[in-house]
Design a protein around this nucleic acid. Structure first.
Length: 270
DNA sequence: CGCGACTCCTGCCGGC
DNA sequence: TGCCGGCAGGAGTCGC
């Protein structure tokens, strides 16, 4: 479910309902996420006020009290606001009840996500060595070109490496490579600067468009306001192995790169 | 040290 | 209809 546009859509959806609100109670039904939810989290956030909701890569940074609640949605997580007292469905692991009468509910069937606490999130090991944000000026074709020199791995896992650029997951990596006409299997270190300039532009364009549309709806993703976004029908290659290329009409190929399924058009992408 | 493989977990889908 | 294997939007960690 969550790639960067989904996380940003979540941030925009929840921020207005958190900022300025006081936490009345933390309810943890299951602590077992990717890492256990810290035992002292209630002490850190109860009776404190959320001041600002930021995002770094796919991490939500919820400033409150003397630090930051770090949230990650993993593969299957979501955060929604519900009225306090709404019965907890299966996998609704955490409620953060607010003095507004609403609660921020964290639901995550696969429990690959995380809720952590830090006094200094940028120094946190999970955040300290992340690459630039894809929509920032720091990310561009020159950076991809420089960072790729000498790399033997395929270009698709290269652009999905969070140390290179954050927030490019399997869907948008696949779509950006199609848009740039680059075969995802091509060796990262042997791609020209000109092609990386185009690839960076396509990554920015596609991510910005997906954010504008409110994230991809693959199964049941909706933002904080419950509006579904960017539909599967708009994707050119992701999830379309064996179907016909929307541009040239040939059958789309599929392979695995870095243990992730990768669909591409062997005619449009070289 | 770079890179690929493995791992965590539940749900869902297709095939038999 | 039911069971089983495989795969799924992430990403840290391990081992070669």
């Amino acid at each position: 479910m969550p790639e960067l546009p989904e996380v940003e859509t979540t941030r925009r959806g929840i921020a207005p309902y958190l900022e300025g609100k006081r936490v009345t109670q933390l309810i943890v039904r299951d602590r077992r996420l990717r890492w256990p939810i810290p035992e002292d989290l209630a002490i850190q956030i109860e009776d404190q006020v959320f001041t600002r909701i930021d995002r770094r890569a796919k991490y939500l940074l919820m400033h409150i009290g003397g630090g930051v609640l770090i949230g990650h949605l993993g593969m299957s997580g979501n955060m929604r606001l519900v009225p306090i007292g709404t019965p907890a469905a299966k996998h609704a692991h955490v409620d953060i009840e607010l003095d507004s009468g609403l609660a921020l509910r964290y639901t995550d069937p696969r429990r690959f996500g995380a809720l952590l606490w830090s006094n200094d999130p940028m120094a946190h090991p999970l955040l300290a060595s992340l690459g630039p944000e894809p929509l920032s000026e720091a990310f561009n074709g020159e950076l991809l070109y420089q960072r790729s020199r000498g790399k033997r791995s395929a270009v698709k896992p290269f652009i999905m490496d969070n140390a290179v650029v954050v927030g490019v997951g399997n869907i948008y990596a696949s779509e950006a490579l199609f848009a740039a006409g680059i075969d995802p299997r091509r060796e990262a270190g042997r791609i020209s600067k000109a092609r990386y300039v185009q690839l960076a532009l396509e990554i920015k364009r596609i991510l910005a468009y997906a954010i504008e549309r409110g994230g991809t709806t693959l199964r049941d993703f909706t933002g904080g306001d419950g509006q579904p976004g960017y539909f599967k029908q708009e994707l050119f290659v992701y999830g379309r192995g064996g179907e016909l290329c929307k541009v040239c009409g040939r059958t789309l190929s599929e392979c695995r790169l870095g243990q992730r399924s990768s669909v591409y058009c062997s005619s449009c992408q070289r």
